[in-house]
């Protein structure tokens, strides 16, 4: 203890080092890029026709303000493992994700006309819903309901699987949020979506 008292600066740095918690932040930009890749595959031609390059994602890491603390910050950066500084990739190549993508692609081909006529719309939670059943012929209403139910089940599973495949089940909510934004951003004009206040908007 006497020695520690003699060298307060070293002691402080040691304590500081001992208190460092390594957090693996959600890689928002990588997740957005992964989401776009999946969505483009699911939407197919619809996505390639969409010229909207809306990319309003805020990178969770870059959003953290860093005060100009000079040498002190440099020192901290040198002792915190590189894992924090690295932007990890998002793995979207597991068998489960491939299967879910393929199922969603199949659904999408059937759902496409109902997006176009406004029968279904995109929710702000990464799922879809029947928005206006009046434009669906009576005979097709249950078919659309089933497609929406199947699609939502697979979307929820997809968000969970991506989080699990990347070893971070706790990312599921962030992945869902990312997808929620990107489904809308990648959608062609004329499709309906719910904005943050819950109001239907046409893209």
């Amino acid at each position: 203890m006497q020695a520690l008292k003699k060298y307060p600066v070293i002691t402080s740095l040691l304590l500081l080092t001992a208190c460092v918690t390594i957090n693996v932040y959600f890689p928002a930009a990588a997740a957005e890029s992964a989401a776009d890749k999946i969505i483009e595959e699911v939407y197919g031609e619809d996505a390639s026709l969409n010229e909207n390059t809306d990319s309003s994602t805020i990178d969770d890491q870059s959003a953290i303000s860093q005060p100009d603390a000079g040498i002190f910050v440099s020192f901290l950066q040198s002792i915190i493992p590189a894992a924090h500084a690295q932007q990890p990739d998002i793995n979207i190549s597991s068998p489960g994700i491939s299967k879910l993508k393929s199922l969603m692609k199949q659904h999408h081909q059937k759902l496409d006309p109902y997006y176009d006529n406004g029968a279904i719309g995109m929710e702000s939670n990464g799922l879809i819903t029947v928005r206006d059943s009046k434009v669906i012929p009576l005979k097709e209403r249950n078919i659309v309901k089933k497609l929406v139910a199947d699609e939502n089940r697979d979307r929820s599973q997809l968000y969970k699987e991506i989080a699990t495949a990347n070893g971070h089940p706790e990312w599921e909510k962030d992945i869902r949020k990312t997808f929620a934004r990107r489904w809308i951003a990648n959608a062609p004009g004329g499709w309906w979506f719910k904005d943050a206040s819950g109001k239907w908007q046409i893209k």
Partner: peptide, 8 residues
């Protein structure tokens, strides 16, 4: 872990 009966 098998997803869609394929190992992941």
């Amino acid at each position: 872990r098998l997803e869609n009966w394929q190992p992941s």
